[in-house]
Design a protein around this nucleic acid. Structure first.
Lengths: 211, 211
DNA sequence: TCAATTATTAAACAATGTTTAAAATATAAA
DNA sequence: TTTATATTTTAAACATTGTTTAATAATTGA
């Protein structure tokens, strides 16, 4: 009778194995070049078996998607200790870009890929994304409260920041900067982050934050 | 003997017809829900025929892609008359977002879709994209020259602006703002554009550009 | 051990992009 | 016009995709 626990555990382990394998193949061959058959073959099961653990391919992708958001949020939480919201905002931008550049496949799934976006809002799992956004929003709010960002609506400013970093990440990941060599891209991103973080703040702050 | 001209003309017309039909179906059913068979059926040809006019599906997409860039550049040129680079930059941002929102399928192909990005840089056709970018860059350069954007590298600032607008567009088009109603999104974009255009400029300009 | 539930599989299905060899058509020369 | 040549167009097939189904194997509880 107590084997139900074990069974459930095994089912979960199998799910984990599938997710892990899928992610491996994704990063190896690109997300759309991975078939259900390929995943099945790698774990030495038949293709049909995958459908006992996931409703369809989108469901696997969605699981990876959720994992990615957990990763990002965990990273974001490392900024908790920073008191100055301006500094926090700057670091958050760098961290976000670092995450995107070092986990291009995760990032692609989370913020760019099609067919995922629609599914997100069905479940409560969007929470992970919402938390990430709220974290940014709170920081922007603090900046405004302290007068470091002036004359602005919180939501407009937050979306602007998000758009800015996402835009850079998306352009790079989807190969729209391929005319530049990698090192130039990296340098430019760094410069752009610096540009935003110094020039968007009010003058007093701008002077203060000159390292 | 003089029928060669006509033949070539007909071939071009056929290409145009295919492109037009493909674009119609793309906007109607979403880019990835359009098969070669569907395109062929709509123009009442067999699927195989398409391959006499285009190397493969990617080639059709690429043709549409190029068309999109021409459209965008034509739009951009309407800003030629604006002397003040700050105002020009502001209008360019609005125009870019307007184009993206009103031509989501074009925009997707041009700046987001996968499999297109790689092909762009093969041919000289990237010129269309480059021109668009250079136009932005020149405007940013002028802003810096006039002291309206301070303390900044041209390329970093240009990329920041591009990233900013592209980020907003990409997030919306790929359904990452689906938790907000459409009208809220529009309002926020407007606010974000305003936020950037007022707060990124140096104080003197900021006061002057208060309409 | 035996019945019942569950997991797994092989096979098939429909749809995709693409290729190929044959048929239809158009062209140029006789 | 007739004939030979080149070009379009097509039907059919191929390989690959995600997914479903009905049968098989394995596991479970009694």
């Amino acid at each position: 009778m107590g084997s139900e626990d074990r069974k459930e555990r095994e089912k979960l382990e199998m799910r984990q194995l599938i997710i892990k394998t899928a992610m491996q193949l994704f990063t190896q061959n690109g997300i759309e070049n991975v078939s259900m058959r390929a995943i099945a073959e790698k774990i030495e099961y038949s293709p049909g078996s995958l459908y006992s653990y996931f409703k369809d391919k989108g469901d696997i992708i969605h699981a990876i998607h959720t994992e990615g958001f957990k990763k990002l949020y965990a990273l974001q939480k490392t900024l908790d200790g920073i008191g100055n919201p301006v500094e926090k905002l700057a670091k958050m931008g760098e961290l976000y870009m670092k995450f995107a550049m070092e986990n291009k496949d995760y990032y692609d799934l989370m913020f760019i890929a099609k067919g995922v976006g629609d599914k997100i809002f069905e479940k409560k799992e969007w929470d992970a994304g919402q938390r990430t956004y709220d974290y940014l929003r709170e920081t922007v709010k603090d900046c405004i409260a302290r007068g470091n960002i002036i004359n602005s609506d919180v939501d407009a400013a937050t979306f602007a920041f998000w758009g800015f970093v996402h835009g850079m990440a998306a352009l790079i990941i989807r190969g729209r900067c391929a005319m530049m060599p990698d090192e130039v891209i990296q340098q430019t991103v760094k410069g752009s982050l610096h540009f935003m973080n110094t020039n968007l703040m009010s003058v007093e702050q701008r002077v203060m934050s000159n390292e």
